[in-house]
Amino acid sequence: MRYLYHAMRMNLKSIAQYRASFLMQNIAQFIMVGGEFLAVVVLMTRFSSAGQWRAEEIMFFWGTMQLTFALCECLGRGISTFAYYVGSGDFDTILLRPRPLMQQVVGHRLDPRRLGGMIVGAGAIAMACARLNIVWTLEKLGLTLIAALGGFFLILGLFLIEATVSFFSVRSIEMVNVLTYGGRTTCEYPVDIYPRPLRILFTWVAPFALSMHLPISHVLGKPLFDVPMALVWLAPLTGPVFFLLMTRVWYIGVKHYRSTGT
């Protein structure tokens, strides 16, 4: 972990060298995610509810997803852009260094301009909370936190699938986007509004429902699944478990890695 800390510090230092650019990119991100926010607002003005969820509740789900996803793109930039390092041969450099591989990949890049996206996500959550009059207890705060953490690792794991695919095919990453960006778009809304195939996909294959929606549904007081409270607390663990699983798969991929050569 010391390596990771060091790498992140170096990244921050290099970003601090380009302050104006950093500010501009953050504003750009803010506007971009703001555009998506506008989309949800338009839909919610038109329809005012989705399934059993009221507009404000949907806003809560949406905000959590945006916040988590932006955080993931910020800290996990090294994983989400991994395909480029394979294509450019940068991965060779990484392989040569006598430091833990995964830490190096994660520490390779940091993308703090996602801060803009995080602010919009947090803003949406705050707005939803204000309208819903949620009484914050320690339990609810804890559930929100582990939902964000579970989602964070789950999304990182999904990006790792993309990274692993890039060992075998330098192009055609677009298709794998379905899981990451498709997952984001789909799971901005709680899974129970979708028909069965999508519900199964995002509960058991890419478990957004277990890691994010279930704890949040308890925060909102409308449990998604009828399970004991202990399981609700454990469900977000699917995120880290998924991540660890994909890390193993990725390491198998590393064994098959052939340099593109330059």
């Binding site: 839909l43 979708y194 028909p195």
Partner: peptide, 21 residues
């Protein structure tokens, strides 16, 4: 082909989303 798969997926998700809405 990649675009086709992605666009089909998004199309289906949106279609189901609007059905719910």
């Amino acid at each position: 082909l990649g675009g086709l798969v992605t666009q089909m997926f998004f199309g289906m998700v949106y279609a189901y989303l609007y059905s719910a809405l």
